[in-house]
Amino acid sequence: MKQNSNLVLCVDDERIGLEVRKILLERAGYRVLTASDGPTGLAIFSAEPVEAVVLDYSMPGMHGGEIAIQMRQVKPQVPILLLSAYIGLAPEVTAVVDLYMTKGRARRSFWKN
């Protein structure tokens, strides 16, 4: 793995999904940090030089939309990918993220040029 590879933060309360994403991203050459809940994810996001976020929508305590809004206040330039099993999330949620995906369908461009 390259030492200067991009740092990605994955936030998901489901351990298996989190581990699978971490493995796939690391195999692709990314460095990956993980969090199993919103508050932990926000703390890592604020403290580390995170360059992209993969965020689950449905989590106890606070959903991914709430987390994304807070992340935007800290580092508005960092791309956020929101994953959800729900189709048709509210526009005020999807407007905050760069990409919203449900079961493999991309809704917007993730990496901005």
Rank of each mutant, 00 (worst) to 15 (best):
M1V: 13
K2T: 14
K2P: 13
Q3F: 14
N6H: 14
V8C: 05
C10R: 00
C10G: 02
V11F: 01
V11M: 04
V11S: 03
V11W: 02
D12G: 04
E14Q: 14
R15Q: 12
R15F: 09
G17K: 03
G17R: 04
L18N: 01
E19Q: 14
V20H: 09
I23E: 09
L24N: 10
L24C: 06
R27Q: 13
A28T: 06
A28M: 09
G29V: 10
G29H: 07
G29N: 07
G29A: 09
Y30W: 10
R31M: 10
L33R: 08
L33P: 02
L33C: 08
T34Y: 00
S36D: 14
S36N: 14
D37W: 05
G38L: 03
G38Y: 01
P39M: 07
G41R: 02
L42W: 09
L42H: 10
L42D: 07
I44Y: 01
I44N: 01
I44T: 12
F45E: 04
S46H: 13
E48V: 08
E48M: 13
P49C: 12
E51P: 10
A52Y: 04
V53Q: 01
V53D: 02
V53C: 05
V54Q: 00
V54D: 08
V54L: 11
L55R: 02
D56I: 02
D56Q: 06
D56T: 03
S58G: 09
P60S: 04
P60I: 03
P60C: 06
P60M: 07
G61W: 06
M62S: 11
M62W: 08
G64A: 05
G64R: 00
G64Y: 02
G65D: 02
E66F: 03
E66G: 15
I67F: 04
A68W: 00
I69L: 15
M71I: 11
M71Y: 05
R72A: 11
R72V: 11
Q73R: 15
Q73K: 15
V74M: 15
P76T: 12
P76K: 13
P76N: 14
V78Q: 10
V78P: 07
I80G: 00
I80F: 00
L81Y: 02
L82H: 02
L82V: 04
L83A: 10
S84Y: 00
S84Q: 01
A85W: 03
Y86M: 11
I87M: 09
I87K: 12
G88I: 07
G88R: 08
L89V: 06
L89F: 00
A90V: 06
A90L: 10
P91W: 10
E92R: 09
V93N: 03
V93P: 07
A95E: 15
V96T: 13
V96L: 13
D98M: 11
M101K: 05
G104H: 03
G104S: 07
R105N: 11
R105W: 06
A106Y: 08
A106T: 09
R107F: 12
R108A: 14
S109W: 12
S109N: 15
F110A: 09
F110I: 13
K112G: 13
N113I: 13
